[in-house]
Design a protein around this nucleic acid. Structure first.
Length: 359
DNA sequence: CAGTCGTGGAC
DNA sequence: TGTCCAAGACT
């Protein structure tokens, strides 16, 4: 009789052959079986974009990036500001900075060739345990165990793991490794993640159509939807701040590039106060007749809610700000801003139009 | 190791 | 509306 591991992986691969989802960065299983592998640059780019981010959110960004920068060499040669602007809205901006660092290492130190093994990939900026395994398996068909949120959930249910995350992470990794086959490594990695994304979902898992329903402990015990267990997280505090939108006579807008490290690092934004849990200090970036807007901009980050008071002003053409730079109206692009800064613009722009001169 | 780091969609 | 969550990495 066939051993259990081969049985399980073959069942999942057969399911994947029928249900693989089409994605711009993916080579479908029928082509992979013929020996066609994806461009490692595409695999790397997509996997970095997919970190803590949904497929739906990534798709258009991936297409845009590969059109603007078709090779890792093109990306390495890009201006930092252009890359950050292209990434704007996707979130977790440290990923974009590490993306550029990694592209430059690969292009200038590695001859434009991505490493094919996990250990070498792990040394590159922005590539951690998951992404190293994913690139190794998907781009090169080298057996590697991917452990993302999907795989953790699938394994916790398959084996009935009751220990909560993150304590159970290493146990789940071993269980996942126990099912990783030696052949079709890339298809298997994508298959087990597709299974988690479409069948073994966080809520209301579709056990009735699951190719791995047979022998699933979570299903047998009727506790699949409750797995994996997780330690409770502290509830998020609310912070407050003030942002200042100054428009010059010629339409130029006062903006500021945020420091590389920290929240929204390296992104352009409106100057303003620190964001703290206590009332923010009023430190305007220049002397002007500031008017406060009645609406508060609300935005939620991973670990805090933010309420922003918006101040606006029309300022003369010879105005000298304490900090920030005036960006010409033709060069201003709200889409190059992180979402919270876009929300501020959406609130401030109509008020500026009402009272201002030409815009 | 526990905190930090975005955003939008689903329920 | 609030909560959870998504193909995690870095410090």
């Amino acid at each position: 009789m066939l051993d259990q591991k081969q049985d399980k992986s073959e069942i999942l691969l057969a399911w994947y052959d029928e249900h693989a989802r089409l994605m711009p960065w993916r080579v479908p299983p029928e082509q992979r079986k013929l020996g066609v592998l994806p461009d490692p640059y595409h695999v790397w780019l997509s996997e970095v974009m997919l970190q803590q981010t949904t497929v739906a959110a990534v798709r258009d960004y991936f297409v845009k990036f590969t059109q603007m920068w078709p090779t890792v060499g093109d990306l390495a040669a890009a201006d930092d500001g252009d890359v950050m602007a292209a990434w704007a809205g996707l979130g977790y901006y440290a990923r974009a900075r590490n993306l550029l660092k990694c592209a430059r290492v690969v292009a200038y130190d590695l001859g434009g060739v991505f490493p094919d093994n996990e250990a070498a990939l792990l040394k590159l900026p922005g590539i951690g345990p998951y992404t190293a395994a994913a690139i190794s398996a998907i781009a090169f068909d080298i057996p590697a165990t991917v452990l993302d949120g999907n795989v953790e959930r699938v394994m916790a249910r398959q084996f009935g793991v009751m220990e909560p995350l993150p304590d159970s992470k290493e146990a789940l990794r071993k269980l996942a490794a126990s099912r990783t086959p030696q052949n079709r490594a890339g298809d298997y990695a994508q298959a087990v993640m597709d299974l988690g994304a479409t069948i073994c979902t966080p809520r209301s898992p579709r056990c009735g159509v699951c190719p791995w329903a047979q022998g699933c402990k979570g299903r047998e015990q009727g506790i699949a939807p409750q797995l994996p267990k997780k330690r409770k997280k502290a509830k998020v505090p609310t912070r407050v701040g003030v942002v200042y939108v100054a428009r010059r006579n010629d339409g130029a807008l006062l903006m500021e590039q945020r420091p590389d490290k920290g929240l929204l690092g390296g992104m352009m934004g409106w100057p303003g106060s620190e964001w703290a849990e206590t009332e923010a200090e009023q430190n305007a970036p220049m002397n002007a007749d500031w008017r406060s807007l009645p609406e508060t901009v609300r935005h939620t980050f991973t670990h805090f809610h933010l309420h922003l008071k918006v101040m606006i002003a029309d300022v003369p053409s010879d105005a000298a700000p304490f900090r920030g730079v005036f960006v010409d109206r033709e060069r201003f692009d709200a889409n190059a801003l992180p979402t919270v800064m876009r929300k501020v613009w959406k609130t401030a722009a109509p008020a500026l139009v009402e009272t201002g001169q030409d815009i």
